[in-house]
């Protein structure tokens, strides 16, 4: 069976998805402040890698990278709520791109699997 990454259209679709997802994050007061002083192009590249990973595309994901990348945010209060917000927006993004409930649940499960890495537990 092909991955959701392939089903929704590969790299081109992920690029579209990243813009939709990033906009949702930037206008959500629950998480927006974490993006205040962030270089938008670098942030986008990271989100590209993240979305590619959770969609089952070609990625070089390493739990240790996820830990290191978020350690300073955990110090600023990053917690389960924020991971929930990410998963919520991820699901809404995929819905906009035409993914079905089953696909969205599968992606949410992968995103959930890195929760402890992100939160440094």
């Amino acid at each position: 069976m092909s991955s959701i990454y392939e089903q929704i259209g590969g790299a081109a679709a992920v690029e579209k998805a990243v813009d939709i997802f990033y906009r949702k994050m930037l206008i959500d007061d629950r998480v927006a402040s974490y993006f205040d002083d962030v270089d938008m192009d670098r942030q986008r590249a990271k989100q590209m890698a993240f979305l590619t990973m959770v969609l089952g595309g070609p990625s070089h994901y390493a739990g240790q990278d996820m830990r290191r990348a978020h350690a300073h945010l955990v110090k600023r209060g990053l917690g389960d709520l924020h991971v929930d917000v990410v998963i919520e927006h991820l699901g809404d993004t995929l819905k906009e791109l035409g993914a079905n409930e089953q696909q969205i649940a599968a992606v949410a499960a992968i995103a959930n699997s890195v929760r402890n890495d992100v939160l440094g537990r």
């Binding site: 579209k16 990243v18 813009d19 906009r23 930037l26 206008i27 938008m40 192009d41 986008r44």
Partner: peptide
């Protein structure tokens, strides 16, 4: 530049 970039992105321009 940073402010406008963010606002224009939020108002529909693709990042790339």
């Amino acid at each position: 530049v940073q402010q406008t970039k963010r606002k224009i992105f939020l108002k529909g321009a693709a990042m790339r």
